[in-house]
Design a binder for these strands. Structure first.
Lengths: 375, 375
DNA sequence: CTGAAAGCGCTTACAG
DNA sequence: CTGAAAGCGCTTACAG
């Protein structure tokens, strides 16, 4: 009637252990069940003819083991198909892993949402020996970011996640932190030409392309206005590039105007959007790649255009949610702050515990929300 | 320069332990750091004046403890703000948790994708003391599903996930399995009036509403054809209901024709779609709530309509991915099979280990994919 | 450079 | 109905 397949790993079957060392476990009902014996550090120590402590040193790449000994242990690992049990590893560790997440403070709704996500995820991972310390710094201030990094000690924080600002001061502070032994993860905004250990964020070019595909279907022809926070922000610039690429290639009847820059602030975004709308009457759509959505929406409302213009914005926040509900916003592209923080935690664990500690990062999903699929 | 906030739980601070029992841990650098002491079963046993074994019995709701003793332990739990460390719990357990995931076999691409996700997630959770056994059964056959359930023993499987078919035979088998002590989770398709322990899947009415919001923007007026697998399938019927609700209320210039039913099979879907297209020349859009996307797309191509008609389909599979790439499909609504299997695993853990074992399920996200945001 | 022993926070037979 | 002891698979001082 049905076929049965084991979904678990069958690596063990290919290894030496499986053939002759199946442990038979007697289950309550009297059924005898063959369970492939888990390969443990003990097996490893025995096979390599060393002590548990030495196995542990090799496993964690700690210094002070003779190369020949390392080789013996590594051979045993390969032969037995050993995979470290990370729950046991975490349990045995004396110290929790310390992760500092540094997020700008202020009125940027997305940053506040990211900070909330960090609080929430921080609670959940506490039980998994990961301590997440949230640090808020002054926004758009490379000095504040550099200062925060310089204030970190490797004794307290194994790892730090930062929303990078691509400036020399920040680069230098990152190098200093790495020099002190702190692992650095860039979050949301990357620092490509640095020694940072990893990046967690979406593909912003793809996000811009996605926005163009939606906009091209929403309004087949006419002018579309672009609004940004600042073109100096890598993610904003990339979104605009992606949008232009698709619009130019596939929707030639769309005419792009702008971008205007509103510094992700209410008043500036409001004023720039208003100017854009006045300069280009009959605008069919607006795409805001930045964070100043409240300002943009206020300008649209003031011009009586908030239900006739197709609006695409980024990040699910108070204003964009309200906009979706009222119909003032047609679609929101979201990077899922909670998923991002989780990915940061996983990466931190991987970096501190070693390569096999967490599943490899997959690129973060670009999420599209309409009024009807809001979470 | 920056303010610092602990992101971790502060429940302990409100409990008795925090005030007078902060363990001071000396960190390498010579810094003294105050860490709130973790409350363990040992603390509980001492506070309640019982043994570890008794604490464990109360924690896991095992029988054979005097009510007065239970009360003492529970008082201590509340007073100390105890939270069980589940990694330690899993480590100490003799048996892995056994979870059977029962998925129909055959040509339904989504089911195959779900099965692949089960294999993949199964590998990852093996290290977390969760054994996922994948069972494939004949599709659309309530007898096969009932038979598979009846073949399950609580000694081997603590939990089973099924894609429910809403028929008496299945209901009865679910009740029998629950009677034997097996926890039942419905997956993708629910069995609302049963004693199943939980459901993992998306809100299909919301999915249909989402499709209508997209379709209404993609083609503002004209006829839109509906294609389904079977209206007897709860998820298909719900998607259609959601679609109609939004289309009727907000896009009155859209005229809905169909649905036709293609049994989620290639040939039937192909033929029914072809008939639909011939009966209604000049169709502006097609929404397929079911799985027969290859058949639907073939029919569209044959009529030379595959790039002029707006197409919305469900689930990222071979045909829908190819359709997005070629432009034959405009949008795909996806329920994220891997996220679903993960949610099933989390729920299984919760059901077996007790209420605090996994974060509470949040409704699964309805994901929208265009060509440009494919993962 | 290497090892024996204790311990992380739970659960499990086994004994009473 | 209750408890003392051993153990899950790792890591960590401490000793050599």
């Amino acid at each position: 009637m049905f076929s049965r397949c084991e979904a678990g790993s069958s690596r063990l079957d290919a290894a030496g252990k499986a053939g002759d060392d199946l442990r038979t476990s007697k289950i309550d009902g009297g059924v005898d069940l063959q369970i492939p014996g888990r390969v443990t550090v003990r097996d490893l120590a025995q096979a390599a003819g060393v002590s548990l402590a030495t196995v542990d040193r090799v496993l964690n790449g700690r210094p002070g083991v003779r190369p020949a000994t390392i080789a013996k242990v590594e051979a045993a690992i390969a032969r037995l198909g050993f995979r470290r049990d990370l729950t046991a590893s975490m349990l045995a560790r004396a110290r929790d892993i310390g992760l500092a997440v540094i997020i700008p403070e202020g009125s940027n709704q997305f940053m506040n949402r990211l900070a909330e996500a960090a609080q929430a995820v921080g609670q959940q991972v506490r039980g998994e020996r990961l301590r997440l310390d949230l640090l808020r710094i002054r926004a758009l201030d490379p000095g504040a970011l550099a200062g925060a990094l310089d204030g970190l000690s490797p004794d307290i924080h194994d790892c730090a996640a930062i929303i990078a600002i691509d400036m020399a001061e920040v680069h230098a502070a990152v190098e200093r932190a790495i020099g002190r032994g702190i692992r650095i993860i860039t979050l949301v905004s990357d620092l490509p030409h640095s020694a940072r250990h990893g990046f967690v964020g979406i593909d912003n070019v793809a996000a811009g392309r996605t926005a163009a595909s939606l906009m091209g279907r929403f309004c087949r022809m006419g002018k579309v206005g672009l609004v940004a926070g600042s073109l100096d922000l890598r993610d904003h610039a990339e979104r605009i590039a992606g949008f232009r690429a698709v619009a130019d290639a596939e929707y030639p009847r769309l005419e792009i105007v702008g971008p205007v820059e509103g510094q992700d602030a209410f008043t500036a975004t409001y004023e720039k959007t208003l100017a854009l709308l006045r300069t280009h009457p009959g605008l069919m759509g607006v795409y805001n790649v930045g964070a100043g959505n409240a300002g943009m929406l206020t300008a649209l409302a003031e011009m009586g255009m908030n239900h006739t213009v197709a609006v695409i914005a980024h990040e699910l926040t108070g204003p964009t949610r309200a906009g979706l509900a009222s119909g003032a916003v047609d679609a929101v592209i979201d990077q899922g702050p909670e998923a991002e923080i989780r990915a940061v935690c996983a990466m931190a664990r991987r970096l501190v515990l070693g390569a096999d500690a967490a599943p490899p990062e997959r690129p973060l999903e670009i999420r599209i929300f309409l009024r009807d699929n809001l979470p």
